[in-house]
Design a protein around this nucleic acid. Sequence first.
DNA 1: CTTACTGTACTATCACAGTAGTACACACGA
DNA 2: TCGTGTGTACTACTGTGATAGTACAGTAAG
Lengths: 131, 131
Amino acid sequence: MFLHIDAHNGLAVYDQIVRQVKFAVADGTLSAGELVPSVREMAKELAINPNTVARAYRQLQDEGVLAVVRGTGLAVESGARRGCQADRKRLIRERLNDVLTEAHLSGLDEAQIQELFAAELETTKRQRGKS
Amino acid sequence: MFLHIDAHNGLAVYDQIVRQVKFAVADGTLSAGELVPSVREMAKELAINPNTVARAYRQLQDEGVLAVVRGTGLAVESGARRGCQADRKRLIRERLNDVLTEAHLSGLDEAQIQELFAAELETTKRQRGKS
DNA sequence: CTTACTGTACTATCACAGTAGTACACACGA
DNA sequence: TCGTGTGTACTACTGTGATAGTACAGTAAG
């Protein structure tokens, strides 16, 4: 269970956890019934506070992604994958829309925007390849 | 001077002002020597607090975009346009990189990402057309 | 039963963004 | 000169994100 937390990207830490757990479920990295790392273990791994992880986990319960197995931990709900796949597309699309709206309002024309997109897509591909 | 402030897009209000003033300078909407709306006027127009506008203006001074004309207001610096054009591309590129990185890490493949990009580009184009 | 682990709850503290209100020095124009 | 508008500075307050530490009920395994 490797999450990538970036304290400087505008998103709250607990929100990054929520999103990435959903992405893992959508992707199949986390299967139905599988246990998620405990609050304390995840907090230690990410070098953050257990309360922050607990907050993310509680939200994931509220959204039906995780469920308590009493005394054992939190497990992925059986029917969660479909919803997470829908959420994944929606979450990415929302952020993409924000950036593109700002790009348009900044006065960049469509050709310049597409050029930036192509360049950054290559950059992130290379970053992903290296990691 | 029409700025679009969105309280729900993660960016701080003062940061949105900084970015959009830079964009206006880069675009030529604000020319060198032109006066920017006063702190109180801008605050009234955007229905926010004057202190928030003042904070944005101070940062724009620190970055050499605006300069004080004592007793009169803040004016665009003569050589600011080139720097703002560079900033514009950099700011958009940074946000684009964040989204694309998240998209990659979420498990979406390149084809899906390009599909989302094309769809959202159309959406924002329509939104811009209507406004 | 005991130990160790689980999630959960609670208080306190800190930093930051934003709001609210006030005060001051300066410059322009009547 | 006087009034108005300019940026700037300051304190106080609220809400949120995050940290820190403690405590508790439940469960699995020894």
